[in-house]
Amino acid sequence: MRRLISAAVWAVVGACAVACMGCDRSEPTVVVYVSADDYVAKPILEAFEDRSGIRVLMVGDTEARKSTGLIERLRREGAAPVADVLWSSELLGVVSLSRDGLLAPHVSADCQDWPPLWRDPEYRWYAFSPRPRVLVYDPERLHPSECPAEWADLADPRWRGEIVAADPRYGTTGTHLAALRWVLGDAWPAWLDALARNEVRVLPGGNAACVDAVYRGEALLGMTDADDVRAANRNGAALAMTLPGHGSGRGPMLTPNTVAILQGAPHPAEAAALVDWLLSPDVARRLAASVSGNVPLHASVAMEFPDLAVGSPLPLDAAQIHAHHGPAVAQAVDAWGGGANAGGP
């Protein structure tokens, strides 16, 4: 009996010890919130640990709630963040946090010459290794010549019932809709209504669910990111993607990874070291070579991956995208339904 109680106590103590492994803060540590795919982020963070001797603790995210959950978590933490660094898989989150005054500026010898298009004017965030926003399709069901050349072409009634998208309230889908609202201007409401008439289906499972829907033949076209298509193809799907333009000669949209240091970060020096590492050519090369196939921004690395080059991408104006995001998402949810119009028995 006493042995049983003793065993129970030791079990709890042991469990606590196991659960709390990794909470040792005596060594240099950096806490990073990551919405990039585990399989892409983890090896890069491990390489950073090996090189710098700084231990990395991370908080990840799931595909369905991509990046949005982490941004809101940082907002809740406010001026006393647990995180030192945010590595987001899209743009809007850091812009929003920067405007809320939650990001700290960071300039170092490694990143002071970063292209202005891919950073905050006040150096509060940096964009790196983007991947294209694409339409995924099954080449056995749709010939490449039939695919829309422009995002505006999705309004064509021939695509009625054949388009799927992720919940616009999350991640890259919301950011892309903001960009579309910005570039389409007065044509935006008509485009949104046309897609609603085309019965675009909003899937609760995120971009990966869109790829799966096309793979399964439930839709001809899925609005998603290139890395999600590559992930599916890695596992045997034979899907293809097209990179539609945004009208007036503006090419495809590139959705960047972004990195920033939190204002009031508990470990600022370690955080700076991690940001410099993430912006290094070495990481650009690793991300380009990964399943994700991110486009390297360093000219020297880009030459090594000519297949990943994207011609004349849409120049992203972070301020414009931030300004358009709220209305774009609200109008899209109103027109399409935010995951509520997905099919079910």
Binding site: Y33, D38, L57, M58, E63, G206, A208
Partner: peptide, 21 residues
């Protein structure tokens, strides 16, 4: 979940499902 060396196993599992691993 607090910061950890790796994400919680359920998160890893769900991401593996999504990312075809």
């Amino acid at each position: 979940a607090p910061p950890m060396a790796s994400p919680p196993i359920a998160v890893t599992l769900l991401n593996a499902i999504h990312y075809q691993r």
